[in-house]
């Protein structure tokens, strides 16, 4: 097959559409649903969490007429439980889903994964189009694993431990209360919880940016893919998911 290097045109596309864009079904329904549930719950968690950490606005009037912090905490806790369920669902789908559901895992025991990691980093820095992936690329998968899976688990565990303080005899305290003395007491855990929240937010910034960049750079339907489940590639794209096994 010939090596295609010139930019494709609308005429090319009209002449032989099959050469240019074809769709692959990548993200299954649970992946897409948990993605958006996670996105919404993290947004709610971060905003309410910022208020809980530093209540910047205060209502006027009698205390009994207001419940500002109370609502912030209620929303925070509810969103936290929703996020935890979403996390668990996605973790289950890691095992039950198609191969792309596992593509975010850092497969550091495979040489191909490491090659892909450095290659992708280099392509991003060179602002080159680079090779195309249908699942995660190694770099994206690694940051997803750290930013959502690991930090998410940390936030869920510390969050539930802090939440369990409200009911010292309750089941939550029996399950997660031991984490507080283990991590240096509830006061420090509060600080770690907030610090980790900022790290998650850092991931969100990078994630949203790189998704927009990738989507415009590759024209691979990265954003719509998380709604429809389908991503696009062109004939001749080297599909880089080979390390996925």
């Amino acid at each position: 097959m010939a090596i295609e290097t010139r930019p494709f045109t609308t005429e090319d596309f009209a002449r032989n559409p099959d050469d240019y864009y074809r769709a692959g079904y990548v993200w299954q329904v649970p992946v897409r649903v948990t993605h958006w549930v996670t996105a919404l719950s993290i947004t709610a968690l971060f905003l309410t969490g910022l208020y809980i950490a530093n209540p910047v606005f205060s209502p006027e009037g009698e205390a009994w007429k207001n419940f500002t912090m109370g609502w912030m905490r209620k929303i925070h806790f509810a969103a936290g439980f929703i996020f935890a369920v979403s996390w668990l669902t996605r973790a289950y789908w890691f095992f039950a889903g198609n191969n792309y559901a596992r593509s975010g895992f850092p497969m550091f025991w495979r040489a191909g994964w490491w090659r892909d990691l450095w290659h992708q980093l280099w392509e991003y820095l060179k602002l080159k189009r680079g090779p195309i992936h249908l699942g995660h690329n190694a770099l994206g998968g690694l940051s997803y694993t750290l930013g959502v899976v690991v930090l998410g688990a940390f936030q869920i565990l510390t969050g539930l431990a802090l939440f369990s303080q409200d009911a010292p005899t309750g089941p939550m305290n029996r399950l997660f209360g031991w984490l507080l003395p283990f991590l240096g007491g509830p006061f420090r855990v509060t600080s770690y919880h907030l610090l980790a929240a900022w790290f998650v937010f850092t991931f969100v910034i990078l994630h949203v940016y790189i998704v927009i960049y990738d989507s415009t750079q590759y024209r691979n339907g990265l954003i719509s893919g998380m709604i429809t489940g389908r991503k696009f590639y062109q004939r001749g794209d080297k599909v880089q998911d080979t390390w996925l096994g």
């Binding site: 097959m1 295609e4 290097t5 692959g24 990548v26 960049y213 415009t216 750079q217 001749g236």
Partner: peptide
């Protein structure tokens, strides 16, 4: 990226194999 006018699909990588797409 914008300065380099890179935000459009202008290049293609050498084709090695077009197979292997799962799904």
């Amino acid at each position: 990226a914008i300065a380099k006018n890179a935000v459009k699909p202008t290049e293609k990588v050498p084709v090695e194999s077009s197979s292997g797409v799962k799904g």
